[in-house]
Design a protein around this nucleic acid. Structure first.
Lengths: 151, 151
DNA sequence: CTTGAAAAGAACTGCCT
DNA sequence: AGGCAGTTCTTTTCAAG
């Protein structure tokens, strides 16, 4: 954990909304000079608080109209089977995120597909054949909103 | 949907990993000049394929050691109750994302907390009191990996 | 599409309070 | 810590092939 003051939090919050803002523009808004603002951002990057910058991509514009969340319960949970499962699931291009979780399910996957027939193909030929996959539960994404919360 | 050639996909893929790369550096890697590369990126932004740039923040470094996924089933599902629920859930700072989904649950939330006692506080005082919230299922995040997939 | 150039702005550095 | 001044790099636009 890192010590942050008010200005650091404001900077993180502002950059979280749009990472393309310049240090000088942010400095004006928060009453700092350009180098001072830049040094703060640099310090946050070096401390690992800011781990990088990523693109926000539109799944629809890329032709992926369907996003499905899968909850997966493994049939056999040895150490080997976890690694086997993770290696196999990492090879599926339609899988965007793999989350190892504790609870009703063992893994949660975010999967994209062009449409529902395409998703059925992914599900039958890729997901259902994963080594160790037991119960699979699906939720189709209708809409999503990210909040300007603490992170 | 937008028409993309091989180079567009390579650019999106490369920028998806690290959005801080310059147009000239990307151009060298893919055999394009700096202005040509820049025009392609600009075109992708104007087409909405690239929707923006966001910070990747470290939850741990910010003092949030616990991430929990909640699946929520509404008790009463009228149009009014959906909007009530969404408005109320949007006011909880610990909620990072709200996903309206189709399936076993109605909403999926990504929630962060400093630790498990802090999460219990959020769950009891914030989540359980949400208007219309019925069944709540929780999965604690152990580890997460984002893939270099199609998006 | 390319190269080359020029102007604007953002990122970075050193020095000083 | 912060500000100021200056340098370097990227971005952005333009002309011409």
């Amino acid at each position: 954990m890192t010590e942050l003051d008010e200005i650091d939090r404001k900077l993180i919050h502002a950059l979280g909304r749009d990472a393309r803002q310049s240090a000088s523009a942010l400095g004006k808004r928060f009453g700092l000079s350009q180098p001072a603002t830049w040094r703060r951002i640099k310090r946050l990057e070096e401390a690992g608080v800011i781990a990088g910058k990523r693109l926000r991509l539109s799944a629809e514009k890329l032709g992926f109209g369907v996003t499905v969340f899968l909850g997966i319960k493994l049939a056999t949970k040895g150490r080997v089977s976890l690694e086997d499962f993770e290696r196999a699931v990492s090879a599926i291009p339609e899988v965007q995120t793999v989350e190892h979780v504790l609870g009703l399910y063992d893994y949660r996957l975010r999967v994209v597909a062009r449409d529902l027939p395409d998703f059925e193909r992914v599900l039958r030929r890729r997901i259902m054949t994963l080594p160790g996959a037991g119960e699979v539960e699906a939720n189709v994404l209708l809409s999503e909103e990210r909040m300007p919360g603490p992170l």
